[in-house]
């Protein structure tokens, strides 16, 4: 129960940060990318502050033997660059540039009751589900062939 309550409270802090910073506002995000047009550099400040706090905080947290509410840390160990990472990230960037929504910005935007956020999130979830189904099917086929 404590895990659930803590996660909810941390989600509230995350969502507040997104809303206050302007990351939930597609017009502002698109203007950040429009360097040669109506450029708004605000989001560079969002990233800089978020990164500074996280980098310093992680240094202390990851030195501990385990998290406060769970038996162990779940930190990805893969350090290899591969095609799915780069191609997937390029696709994400194209979609972000078309819409101005990224997952972390769009989920809190749902709370504003804006139809555009709901349309985007519905479509994004369909995209994740389709990609996941495809990967699971491919892995099962590969397993059968060995």
């Amino acid at each position: 129960m404590l895990r659930i309550l803590a996660a909810g409270a941390i989600g509230l802090v995350f969502g507040s940060g997104i809303a206050i910073s302007g990351m939930a506002n597609p017009a502002k995000v698109l203007n950040f990318f429009d360097i040669f047009g109506t450029w708004d550099p605000s989001l560079a400040f969002v990233m800089a502050a978020a990164l500074a706090v996280t980098a310093i905080g992680y240094r202390f947290v990851l030195k501990r033997p385990r998290p406060l509410l769970e038996p162990k840390f779940h930190v990805p160990g893969n350090r290899k660059l591969d095609m799915p990472l780069i191609a997937g990230s390029a696709a994400f960037g194209i979609g972000w540039g078309i819409t101005g929504f990224c997952p972390g910005g769009a989920i809190p935007a749902l709370g504003l009751g804006e139809p555009s956020a709901w349309i985007f999130v519905g479509s994004m979830l369909a995209g994740i589900a389709a990609a996941r189904t495809l990967r699971i099917a491919l892995e099962q086929r590969a397993a059968q062939n060995t």
């Binding site: 191609a87 997952p103 985007f120 999130v121």
Partner: peptide, 11 residues
């Protein structure tokens, strides 16, 4: 754009 973002962030 939503579909492209979903597929992109998953892979």
């Amino acid at each position: 754009g939503g579909l492209i973002v979903g597929i992109g962030v998953y892979f």
